[in-house]
Design a protein around this nucleic acid. Sequence first.
DNA 1: GTCTATAAAAAGATAGAC
DNA 2: GTCTATCTTTTTATAGAC
Lengths: 196, 196
Amino acid sequence: MVRHRGARENRREEILLAALDVFAQRGYTGASIASIAERVGLSQQGVLHYFPSKDRLLAEVLRLRDERNLDVLVLPGEGGAITLETVAGLVEYNAQRRGIVQSFTVLSAESVIEDHPARNFFKERYGTSRAWMAEVIRAELGDELPAGLTPEQAAPLMFAVMDGLQLQWLLAPDEIDMPGLFRAFLSLLKGAPRPS
Amino acid sequence: MVRHRGARENRREEILLAALDVFAQRGYTGASIASIAERVGLSQQGVLHYFPSKDRLLAEVLRLRDERNLDVLVLPGEGGAITLETVAGLVEYNAQRRGIVQSFTVLSAESVIEDHPARNFFKERYGTSRAWMAEVIRAELGDELPAGLTPEQAAPLMFAVMDGLQLQWLLAPDEIDMPGLFRAFLSLLKGAPRPS
DNA sequence: GTCTATAAAAAGATAGAC
DNA sequence: GTCTATCTTTTTATAGAC
C-alpha cells in the first residue's frame, strides 16, 4: 500500500463515491467520465489513471455499494443474524439515502439491457439474495406462510416490493411512505390478525 | 389525414414501434435516432422529419405503449370492468412480451433521473394508476384486507410487485415464474385460507 | 500521479436539394 | 417525404510530457 502525503490518501475511493453519485443522477450510459472527474477536481484522464475504463469503474462502484449495504444489514443484527426487522431497517435507512437508492434503481434496470456491463452482477446478486432471504423467512416464519406461500415464493416477492416501492418513492416521495408500505407487506407475510 | 400509396400508409407508427424496440434494447439515453431509422429503412433525418426531436419521439412512444396496455386491460373485462383477474391476465400477457416489458422497465427507471423527459409521464401514470387500482381492490375485496391493510396501501404494493418481478424476471426468466408469483401475492391480499 | 494533446467515433439537430 | 451535407458537441480512450 503506497502512502501519499496531504489530504488525498485515497483518491480511488473518492472517485468511486463521485461515480456512484453521477451514475445516480444520469445513469451509467448517460454519465461521462469527465463529469465524475470534475467532482473530485481531476481531469478525465486523471480518473482513467485509476480505472482503465468506464466499465471497470462501474464494476468497482457496484462492489462498493454492496459492501455498504451489507454493513447496514449485518451490523444491527445480533450476532450477525439477519432478521425481517433488520430488512425493514434497511428500507428505513434507504428512505434517507435518496442518491444511493436512485443509483441502484437506475443501474439495476439499465442492466437488463443485453451486453450491459452490470448485467451479470445484478443477475447473480438477485440469485444469491433470494436464496438467503428465503432462509431468513423460513427461520422466522417457518415453512408455511399465509395463503400457502413458501419462503421460496416470498423471497422474490420481498425484493420485488423493495425495488418497486423504491421506483414509486423516487418519483413521488411525498405520496409514498416506503418504509410503512414495506412493513405493511411484511405484516401480510406474517399473517398478523386484523386489529378488529 | 393524408393518404400515401404503397405499403407505407403509416410511417409514423412504424417508427414508433421501432423506437419502442430500440429503447428496450438500449434505454433512452443509449439509443440513437440513427439506429431507430435503420430499422425502418430511413436515414436519421428521415425520422426527424416525423418527430422534431428525440424527446418528442419518446413522448409519443410512451403514449402508444399506454394505449396498448389499456387494450389488454380493458378488452377482456366484462362490460369494461377491470378486476384482479384482469390484472393477473395482464401479467401473463407481459410474460410473453419480453421486449415491451424491458422497454417499460428501463424507461421507467431511467425516468427518475432529474430532468428526464419521461419523468412527468411516469409520475402521473403511477399516481392515477394507484388511484384506480385502489378502487379495483376495494370493489373486489372490500375495505378491510388481511393484516389490516387498506386498499390505498395495497395499490402501490401491487404495482411494486409487478415492477419488481419484471426486473428479476428479465434478468433470470428461467428462475422467476412471474405470473405465478404475482398470483401468489394476490392470494396473500385475498387472505385465502391455506389448503391444508 | 496528473496533466495536455490528440485521436477517432458518434451524437442531435439544422439547412436545403430533389 | 426523404435525402446529402454539415455544424457543433460530446464521448471514450491513447500517447506522452512533466
